[in-house]
């Protein structure tokens, strides 16, 4: 059953068309990896689903909620009421490329702030849950540290814990390792792999091909704002059908 359904998404920044006509579904417990060259629109689609960008057309459905309520006379989509949008947003956990931790909060408060003030969770409960999450991330010793005291890998693990603290239905990763030194990417990939084994629904934008192939249930290859090819990761990455996919993977293997 599809948890997330994306239909015919269009998005342009001025005259620059970034997403032409994107459609895909994500099933419960499925791990989807989106790959593609930079500028292909793979991050933009995540940001559109998470309402960090508006869409110019199409529909996004998360569980029973539709993001777009209708179409205005001039063809522009009309967004659903704020409470619906808010609910959709809370059902998605987003992990950024640059972590975007709150530097003035301790690790603990980074994780508990949203549950306490957004979900109105009792503080004790939020702290208990945060302790579990941080333990899972291997950060039990770091409750009282501040982000600047942590390595990039540790910061990214805090941000994963922060996203999980809201119990989202779907977890999004926007190039979670590309701001990290190569020796630190492994720890993040390990965490994501562990989350995949828990059957969490995840969408991962990444350029770690080996990782996408090993962890994802499905790979979507995007280029120039369209989905070029998608399917079983081993098929797409090892035996691409489309020319553009072949070209991209060839360049990728040359670079690495």
């Amino acid at each position: 059953m599809a948890v997330l359904s994306v239909k015919n998404i269009k998005k342009a920044f001025g005259s620059n068309v970034v997403l032409t006509d994107i459609s895909f579904d994500v099933d419960a417990g499925e791990v989807v990896a989106i790959i593609g060259p930079s500028g292909s629109g793979k991050s933009t689609i995540l940001r559109c689903i998470n309402q960090l960008e508006t869409i110019d057309g199409g529909q996004i459905t998360l569980l029973d909620d539709n993001m777009i309520a209708g179409t205005s006379p001039d063809g522009k989509p009309i967004y659903s009421p704020p409470q619906v949008l808010r609910k959709m947003r809370l059902n998605i956990g987003l992990v950024f490329q640059n972590f975007n931790l709150f530097p003035h909060f301790s690790v603990m408060r980074n994780v508990t702030e949203a549950p306490i003030h957004v979900l109105k969770m009792p503080k004790e409960q939020a702290v208990e849950e945060a302790k579990d999450l941080l333990a899972k991330m291997g950060l039990s010793e770091k409750h009282d540290s501040y982000p600047y005291q942590l390595s990039g890998g540790q910061q990214q693990r805090v941000s994963i814990a922060r996203a999980l603290a809201l119990h989202p239905e779907v977890l999004f990763f926007d190039e979670p390792t590309s701001a990290l030194d190569p020796e630190l990417t492994g720890e993040i990939l390990k965490v994501i792999r562990a989350l995949a084994q828990e059957k969490r629904t995840m969408v991962i934008v990444t350029h770690e091909m080996a990782f996408a192939r090993d962890v994802a249930d499905r790979v979507i290859f995007m280029d120039q704002g369209v989905i070029v090819e998608q399917g079983d990761p081993k098929e797409v990455i090892n035996h691409p059908k489309e020319e553009r996919t072949k070209l991209f993977l060839k360049r990728y293997s040359e670079d690495n």
């Binding site: 998470n50 309402q51 960090l52 808010r86 947003r89 809370l90 998605i92 956990g93 987003l94 950024f96 640059n98 975007n100 931790l101 709150f102 702030e113 949203a114 003030h117 957004v118 979900l119 941000s159 922060r162 996203a163 809201l166």
Partner: peptide, 17 residues
């Protein structure tokens, strides 16, 4: 940095929060 607004928004904080 705009990332602070985005992170807060993605976590469901209201504009005032």
């Amino acid at each position: 940095p705009v990332g602070q607004y985005e992170a807060a928004g993605a976590l469901g904080f209201t504009k005032a929060q």
